[in-house]
């Protein structure tokens, strides 16, 4: 269970980027997480509420977009999403494929913020 450390890193990262938007409140955080990233969304959501409490992220929603695992097949010379993470094979020809092109991502794609009105 390392989801709590992951969520803490998200809070630190987002808080840091908020420095450029004084007074802003975070409404939502969008993640891109590869299917190979070993992160469980339910655990992330569970930890998110706890870890954001008392931070500028409190009350915001966490949206997790899962990315399929894409391998490059050297025989077909194309990229393709594998059907299951139990078998790293080219979806076209069935050859074993060791070149993983997508699926390990763990990134904050964007945040949605509400900015304070600036007095004229």
């Amino acid at each position: 269970m390392h989801e709590l450390s992951i969520v803490s890193s998200i809070v630190d990262s987002v808080t840091e980027s908020l420095a450029r938007y004084p007074g802003a409140r975070v409404i939502g955080v969008r993640l891109r997480v590869g299917a190979l990233a070993a992160v469980i969304e339910d655990s992330l959501q569970f930890c998110y509420g706890i870890a954001t409490d008392g931070t500028p992220l409190a009350g915001s929603t966490l949206v997790v977009k899962t990315l399929p695992v894409v391998v490059h097949c050297s025989r077909c010379n194309v990229d393709g999403a594998i059907e299951s993470v139990q078998s790293f094979r080219c979806p076209h020809c069935g050859e074993l494929a060791m070149d993983v092109r997508q699926g390990r991502e763990m990134e904050i794609e964007a945040i949605e913020i509400e900015e304070a009105e600036v007095d004229a």
């Binding site: 993640l31 763990m106 990134e107 904050i108 945040i111 949605e112 509400e114």
Partner: peptide
């Protein structure tokens, strides 16, 4: 109040 989307594209474990 205005809302806006800020693209971050930042690895969660970037520090590590």
């Amino acid at each position: 109040m205005t809302t806006r989307i800020v693209e971050l594209r930042r690895g969660i474990l970037k520090k590590n």
